[in-house]
Design a protein around this nucleic acid. Structure first.
Lengths: 147, 147
DNA sequence: CCAATAACCGAAAAAAGATTCGGTATGTCG
DNA sequence: CGACATACCGAATCTTTTTTCGGTTATTGG
């Protein structure tokens, strides 16, 4: 349970962290458990499969640790989704929240050991993407020209 | 253009490969190009970010090369989405279609060099997921108990 | 005190993604 | 030929994810 205690209120967890109502929980939950989780890929994607999660982890790793700053660093995202995905990452122990009572008192996030264990994957994905970004752009361009 | 020729008909490409109509194309396309693609992570996710794409690549790599077989190998998916995501992977050059005129004449997919370059990432994600699957399950269980 | 900023949150709407369903075409095998 | 399997495809529907919007609370700096 441990740091789970920090998050009190199941409504909040279910709703804020997963975006559904408690009445929906059972069906969603059981479905998720039954469906998935024999395949490493799907477990992994459940943790960092969100649209912005890897970008958030990347930002925190680069020292951008506060929600507003992370959001500014990822201009296409909405602040709300940063908050939500940060909360999910927090719930799954990928990040920790450490709002110290120092000046200026603002909440900061840091990577846990689990979060850090994702960094090699992150780096690999990022470098693959960088290596192929021109190719991907060209492919999309070709498609546009055809249309 | 090359193997792009193999895919004839822009309607088909836009609709089957991306699931929207041609009239929507311009806005979607320009948005996509403008938004993304400076960040390796997002380029990469554009290529293999679909729900089942990594599983499909994994299946092909394991020698499960025909759509129906891939679908059977991923029972939670629908055959349709396998077809669509296979077509997208084909379009982005991650897989190749090689329906040889041999008996039995059925379409088969194989990984291209680009597809194979994803295998290390795939392996890393999968092993990370396997290593943490118990933790993830427990986390979900805790949540269930709270509710 | 007051304006500004940050951290959140809930709800509704929009967008994206996946599924279901009903087709066509083609080939195989008995 | 006729039953069956495969490869596809389009459209409608449903689900999930993300965004937008309108708040509350708390802190900071003038």
């Amino acid at each position: 349970m441990a740091d789970f205690e920090a998050i009190n209120g199941c409504n909040r967890i279910a709703n804020a962290y997963f975006g559904f109502k408690l009445k929906d929980w059972e069906s969603m939950y059981t479905r998720k458990i039954d469906e998935d989780l024999d395949c490493g890929i799907r477990v992994a994607l459940k943790i960092f499969g969100g649209k912005w999660k890897l970008c958030i982890i990347d930002a925190i790793n680069k020292g951008i640790v506060r929600p507003v700053e992370i959001h500014k660093n990822i201009p296409d995202s909405s602040l709300r989704v940063i908050e939500i995905q940060l909360a999910e990452l927090l719930f799954f122990g990928v990040v920790d929240k450490c709002s110290e009572d120092v000046y200026p008192k603002k909440s900061e996030y840091e990577l846990t050991a689990l979060g850090k264990s994702l960094l090699p994957i992150l780096a690999q994905i990022d470098s693959w993407g960088m290596a192929h970004s021109e190719f991907v752009k060209e492919r999309l361009l070709e498609l546009e020209e055809e249309v």
